[in-house]
Design a protein around this nucleic acid. Structure first.
Lengths: 220, 220
DNA sequence: AGTAGATTAATGGTCGTTCATTCATAGTAT
DNA sequence: ATACTATGAATGAACGACCATTAATCTACT
C-alpha cells in the first residue's frame, strides 16, 4: 500500500519530468503523448494510469514550477524587518535560479516557432536578431566610450533592455494604465537609472557639464 | 499582368495578416491551415496558390516583423554624430512600438500554454502569478517608503525586473559566458542603477548610513 | 483472488497537403 | 466583335499520417 503509493508517486514524478522537458523543448501542442511515453519508457496508454489527460500533465508541470518560484519568497509578503534591498535581491536571485534550473533548451513563442523553420530560413531570422543585438551593443559601447556610462558587460546590458521591451507583449494592455509613450519613457529611465531614478544619474550630470569625454580606450 | 500581380500581392498580404493574428493568438502549431482559410475567407487548398506550405507562411510572418524592428534603427549602426543617449532612447522607443503594434492578444510559451488549461486550473496558475506580482510590488513599495528609491510606478518597476529575469530563459547558456550567480548580480545591479552603474546609486549611500558600515570611498 | 500496472488494438478526429477539375478573366488572332 | 487560348484563382474530395483517448486483455505481485 504505502510502497505502491511511493512507487506511484515516483513514476508520476518521472513522467512529469519527461513531459516538462519536452514541453520546454518543443512546446505543449507539439509534444504528443507518444513523445512523453517514449521519453519516459512506456506505451502512451500507460500514462493514463497516472494522469486523466494531457491537460492535467501540463497543469502539474506549470503548478510545480510556479510553486518553486513562490515558496522561497512567500515569507517576504509580511515584512520581517530585514532590508528591503536585501529582500529584493533575494527575490531576484531566487526567481532567477528557479527559472534557470527548469531551463533546458527553453524557448518562447517566437523562439519555439523558429524550430519549425527549415535551417536556411531559420538562419535568416536569426541573422536579423543578431543584427539587432549587434546594433544595440554598439550603441551602449559608444555611450561608455563617451563617458556616459561606467564600464559594464555590454552583452548583458543589451539583453536587459531587450528583455524589458519584449516582455511588454505579455502584460501590456493599452486600455487601462499607461500609454505606449509613457511606457517607453519609463523603460528608458529604468534602463539608464534603474530604481535609483534620474536624480543622480550620470546622464543628467554629463548634460549639465560641458562635454569632455573620458578616454575609455578599448573597443571590442 | 500588372493588375493580376497587384491583386496577388494584395491577397497574399491579407492571408499573412490573418495568419499572423492566429499565430499570435493561438501559437503556430495550434493554428491549422483550415483556421487561416476560414479567417481569410477561402478553402484551405487555395492558400497553396500563394504559399508553398505552412512553414513559408510562418517564415513570412516572422521576417516581416523582424524587418519592422531592424529597418528604423539600421542607420544607427554607423554613428551619425548624435547623442548615444538619444540613439538608445530611439532604439527602445522604436522596438517597443513595433513590438506593441503587432501585439493583439499576444502571449509566450507559458502564456500560450495557459490557454490550453480549463478555466479553473488556469485560475489557479494565474493566482500564483498574481501572488508573485503582489510580493515584488510590496517589496519595492517598502523600499520607496524607506527612502531607498524615489517615487515611481511600482507596477512597472516590478514588470521590468520580472521581465529581465524571465527572458534569461531565451539567451542564457551556462557553458559560455557568465555564471548564474554573476548573472544574478548583474540583474540586481541593473535593477537598482540601470546603465548608470553602482557608483552613484542611492543604495550604496543609504547602505553606508543605515547599516553603520564604514563609508567606503567607492565614489569616484 | 485481487489489484495495480502495462500492453495491444482500435476509436474518431484533425492535421497538412495533393489532386483533378472548374470558374473567371485577360490576351490574341481572326 | 467573336472565338480560341492561357492563366490565376477557387473548389470539393480525398490521401496518409498522426493525434488524444479508450477498451479489452494480459502480467506480476500481494
Amino acid at each position: 500500500m504505502i510502497q505502491s503509493e511511493i512507487k506511484t508517486g515516483f513514476q508520476k514524478a518521472k513522467m512529469l519530468e519527461a513531459a516538462r522537458r519536452l514541453f520546454w523543448e518543443k512546446g505543449y501542442n507539439a509534444t504528443s503523448m507518444r513523445d512523453i511515453a517514449v521519453s519516459y519508457g512506456c506505451r502512451p496508454a500507460n500514462i493514463y494510469n497516472f494522469f486523466s489527460d494531457k491537460e492535467e500533465i501540463l497543469f502539474e508541470v506549470l503548478r510545480e514550477e510556479m510553486e518553486q518560484i513562490i515558496i522561497p519568497i512567500k515569507h517576504l509578503e509580511e515584512d520581517d524587518g530585514s532590508s528591503p534591498i536585501e529582500q529584493l535581491k533575494f527575490i531576484i536571485q531566487s526567481h532567477l535560479k528557479v527559472t534557470l534550473s527548469y531551463r533546458r533548451s527553453a524557448k518562447l513563442l517566437f523562439d519555439v516557432a523558429l524550430d519549425s523553420l527549415s535551417p536556411d530560413k531559420r538562419k535568416t531570422i536569426i541573422d536579423l536578431r543578431d543584427d539587432y543585438d549587434r546594433i544595440i551593443r554598439k550603441v551602449i559601447r559608444r555611450g561608455m566610450d563617451a563617458g556616459y556610462f561606467p564600464e559594464m558587460d555590454v552583452k548583458l546590458a543589451g539583453f536587459m533592455i531587450a528583455s524589458m521591451i519584449t516582455r511588454t507583449r505579455i502584460w501590456f494592455h493599452p486600455k487601462k494604465g499607461v500609454s505606449v509613450n509613457e511606457l517607453a519613457d519609463f523603460i528608458s529611465k529604468f534602463a539608464f537609472h534603474g530604481l535609483d531614478g534620474s536624480s543622480t544619474g550620470s546622464y543628467e550630470k554629463l548634460l549639465s557639464r560641458t562635454l569632455h569625454t573620458r578616454s575609455g580606450g578599448n573597443k571590442r
